[in-house]
Structures are given as C-alpha cells and as structure tokens.
Amino acid sequence: MSNSPLPTPAPFVSPETEPYWSGAKAGKLVLPHCRACDHTIWYPKAFCGECGAFDVEWREASGLGTLYSFTQVFRGEGPYRECASFVLALVDLDEGARVLTNIVDADPAGLAVGQRLRAVFHDAGEAAALVRFTPIPTSSDT
C-alpha cells in the first residue's frame, strides 16, 4: 500500500457497498457480478439494473485496465482545492466497467488514450481505500 500525494477523502460506505470498499482496503479490486444474467455491474451496488436481480456476487477483478480518457485538472474543488493539479481519468477495466479514477505516479504529459494500467490502493479512512491507477511499464520503457 503506497502513500498517496493526492487527498484521500473517506468515501461514504453503506452496508450495500461495503464489500467493494473492504476489498479495496485489503488491496483487491472487487466488483459486483449478477449471477442471474452474468453482467458485471458498475457502479458498485447490490442490484442488477439489467435484469432486476438482487442475486449479486462480489468477485475479485484483475485490477488491469485501459485508459479511455484523461484530464489534468488545475481547478480542484472540495478536498482537491489545494492541489496544484491532478489527473482525473476514465479507465476501462478488463472486466468491462468504465470507472472514474485518478492516474498516479505518472507524468501527465506522457499519458495516452489506450495505454495499459493497473490498480493501486490508497487508504481512505477506517473502512475503505481509494482505487487509483498507474501505468504498466512497457518493454520500450527504460
């Protein structure tokens, strides 16, 4: 578990979403999966909007994904107000969900849509960790 240079506000954790957050706290990306229709649900919830089932299983995901889009934000709000800048991104998880997150430990100028990423976990309060992403070095990187 690395320390984050970004704010790590504690998310609101409810009994419904606790498996996601406790998974992250343990360094695992855990996603809800509908047993009835085989759909990976995003955002985390205990209900499948595709088929109306409550039969949700929390499965560990690969933690791997691809960069769909990114932006360097220079005007943060709330806990991010004091940040000079940070990278907000959309990552397509290999399991099929598109998640809003941050890219960390990377030069924003070197980011590119389509690049491969892996999840990192930053402790946020007693019951959760934030799921952020960092580039996977390619063989051409030195």
């Binding site: 955002y43 934000v73 809003l100």
Partner: peptide, 10 residues
C-alpha cells in the same frame, strides 16, 4: 457519488 467525488470529480 461515493465512487466519483472522492477522486476530485468536477
């Protein structure tokens, strides 16, 4: 919101 605002969504 719990899955978005914590990352500095604006």
């Amino acid at each position: 919101f719990p899955f978005e605002t914590v990352y500095g969504e604006t």
